[in-house]
């Protein structure tokens, strides 16, 4: 069956509406997710940085940086951690996980003696990070820097949002299409039926009230339309029959005996007989 025009229109409208809804909800939830993930990653990074700071006091005081390296390498394995490095009290990087060398952008990063600080950094060629700096011994022995990868976060957000949004969109559209189909059917079916009946009236077929019987009982606007239509059709038909009767009343009555008498009065005169003769002559002459 051909899709009703009305349904096509409603579906197109629903599609536009839902795409708009899904896009706005995606943006909002993406924003929320970003905030939550940031907090989570940052606290994870801060905890890590503080742990390392506490653990490395001894080694740093002993100026034995080499033992720190393996600890840092292990920490850098943790998901979301991009780099770890330690700066000593003189500002020298004593251990780090950068391969092969420490990028310039990172060298200038400083910390706060009193507290763990977080700042966003961009490192050319490596990407965006949240650099978390934890003081070692209140900064006396230096700082631990942990870099949390922002790109991983962004990817997580993207995949989470894209997946759910698409799923939501598909489900919503499917539901809307089904709903619209049901609603439209209940509207277009009766309209198509009315159209059929109207066309049959137009052709001059007799009006059969049964054709709209079910519809007329419906207690909604369509039912009302069907009832009004039915009344109208009945009236139109009644008027038509009246007119037909009038034409039939036009049946022309002729009094045959009177006519015969009237014709005879004319045709039996001598004048008429001579005319008839004349007519005959003229026609033979012309032929």
């Amino acid at each position: 069956m051909r899709m009703p025009k009305l349904l096509q229109k409603v579906l197109a409208g629903v599609l536009v509406l839902f795409v708009a809804v899904v896009v706005t909800t995606s943006v909002i939830s993406g924003w929320n997710l970003d905030r939550l993930l940031r907090e989570q990653y940052d606290s994870k990074g801060a905890a890590l940085a503080n742990d390392i700071a506490a653990a490395s006091v001894e080694t740093l005081l002993n100026r034995d940086a080499s033992t720190l390296q393996s600890a840092l390498d292990q920490s850098a394995e943790i998901q979301g951690v991009s780099y770890v490095f330690i700066v000593d009290d003189r500002g020298q990087i004593v251990a780090h996980t950068f391969v092969p060398s420490v990028p310039e952008a990172v060298r200038s990063l400083s910390g706060n003696r009193a507290t763990t600080t977080i700042r966003d950094v961009h490192v050319d060629g490596l990407g965006d990070f949240a650099d978390i700096a934890a003081p070692i011994l209140g900064g006396e022995a230096g700082y631990v820097h942990v870099g949390m990868d922002r790109a991983i976060m962004a990817n997580q957000i993207k995949s989470a949002i894209a997946g759910t949004s698409l799923a939501i969109l598909v489900v919503m559209i499917a539901l809307a299409a089904a709903g619209a189909m049901v609603v439209i059917r209940t509207v277009t079916r009766p309209i198509l039926r009315l159209t059929d009946v109207a066309q049959s009236l137009e052709r001059g077929d007799p009006y059969r009230p049964e054709a709209l019987a079910g519809l007329s009982k419906q207690k909604d606007e369509l039912g009302q339309l069907a009832r009004v239509f039915g009344d109208m059709a009945a009236q139109v038909k009644a008027r038509e029959t009246r007119l037909k009767q009038q034409v039939e009343e036009l049946r022309i009555e002729i009094d045959q005996t009177k006519k015969a008498k009237q014709v005879a009065e004319i045709t039996e005169s001598d004048y008429f007989k001579s005319l008839r003769q004349k007519a005959k002559e003229m026609r033979t002459v012309r032929e």
Binding site: I252, E253, I254, D255, K258, K259, Q262, V263, I266, T267, F272, L275, R276, A279, K280, R283
Partner: peptide, 20 residues
């Protein structure tokens, strides 16, 4: 109805005159 009867007479008379 004024015209019906008279027309019938006319038609008959015309036929008697053999109008083609």
């Amino acid at each position: 109805r004024q015209d019906y009867q008279g027309t019938a007479v006319t038609v008959d008379v015309a036929r008697k005159l053999e109008v083609p």
